[in-house]
């Protein structure tokens, strides 16, 4: 995340907790590639925990929301809503825009409507980014076919069962961004009526009025708390990798699965690549062989961080 466009990736950290409503969003300026150099800390924003300025247990996404060539940031709190930080093109940020919406998890940035800016994708709904990302109105829109991840009138506790991991990419190469979503937690008992599994939703002809086309990768499990979309074998088609976490009452075997994409919206049968619990896995090519490897924390704030080397190119 090169926030100041100096050619070096910077580090962004959301310092939030699972129990309190205060926190901070900071970034560390890369000392021009010298890993042991002086990383200058810059606070982008602080939440004091008051009613109108609070955050809890966050997740964040970085992308060029307004299309100006500089990276912006969105932070979603698990309870209160999301905050949008637009880069002033120098590593400092405009005052954040607060987006009120239902709680829980699931966040991605994607140009769903194809207008050149990145929209904000949540668990079953999305915010359309306005042409002026600083002063304009972000419009909350439904995703027909994903309503279960964003039910109206549910309590916060119930909504824990509607937490999700969300990614967005053009899965079937039709020029329109699609959505991949997994149920990430399930705490109050399994029920077939609750959303579960891992699914791809292909964008229909009409983004607003048409029902998205569902492609089910997994329909059995409830705790896919790690979800990534990437071309894992460099065949030009996007694949999916997901891991089951210890969160929830799934009682499923802890495992990581991959689904090989065919580039047309269809996928092959899953392959189990590991049998460890996983929470918020990350992809990156640590050995420089051109294939994305997989870093997998065991659980929230505890356990081991394992890494899986991608051998698809061997």
């Amino acid at each position: 995340m090169d926030l100041d466009n100096d050619g070096y990736l910077d580090i962004i950290q959301t310092d939030t907790t699972n129990t309190g409503d205060s926190g901070a969003l900071v970034w560390y300026k890369n000392p021009q590639g010298k890993l042991s150099g002086n990383w200058i800390e810059n606070t982008i924003y602080s939440w004091d925990g008051s009613a109108n300025n609070r955050i809890r247990h966050s997740e964040e996404e970085v992308g060029d929301i307004d299309g100006d060539g500089y990276l912006d940031i969105v932070v979603r709190g698990i309870l209160y809503g999301s905050w949008v930080f637009i880069n002033k093109q120098n590593g400092t940020f405009h005052p954040p825009i607060f987006l009120s919406h239902n709680p829980r998890e699931g966040l991605a940035l994607s140009d769903l409507d194809g207008d050149g800016d990145l929209d904000i994708v949540l668990n079953g709904v999305w915010f359309e980014t306005p042409s002026n990302a600083v002063s304009g109105n972000y419009i909350l829109r439904a995703i027909k076919g994903l309503e279960k991840w964003y039910p109206a009138g549910r309590t916060n506790e119930e909504l824990r069962d509607y937490a999700a991991k969300v990614r967005s990419a053009d899965i079937n190469k039709d020029g329109k961004m699609d959505i991949v979503i997994s149920n990430s937690e399930e705490l109050s008992g399994n029920s077939p009526s609750k959303p579960h599994g891992v699914h791809v939703f292909l964008q229909p002809a009409n983004l607003i009025s048409d029902t998205w086309i569902k492609v089910t990768l997994d329909s059995d499990n409830y705790s896919w708390h790690s979800l990534k979309v990437e071309d894992l074998n460099n065949d030009g088609h996007l694949d999916v990798i997901a891991s089951i976490s210890t969160v929830g009452v799934d009682n499923a075997a802890f495992e990581t699965k991959t689904w090989q994409g065919h580039g047309d919206g269809s996928f092959g049968a899953p392959t189990v690549i590991g049998n460890n619990a996983g929470y918020q896995g990350l992809l990156g090519d640590y050995d420089g062989d051109g294939f994305a490897d997989y870093f997998l924390p065991n659980a929230f704030n505890s356990g081991a961080i394992r890494y899986y080397r991608n051998q698809s190119g061997d």
């Binding site: 065949d235 991959t258 590991g274 997989y294 394992r306």
Partner: peptide, 22 residues
């Protein structure tokens, strides 16, 4: 196109040191 293959190579670290890879 090759099949997707991964191997569990090892552990980066253990313990309550903040396991949410940022």
């Amino acid at each position: 196109p090759s099949e997707i293959k991964f191997s569990n190579v090892g552990t980066l670290y253990n313990g309550n040191t903040g396991t949410r890879g940022s």
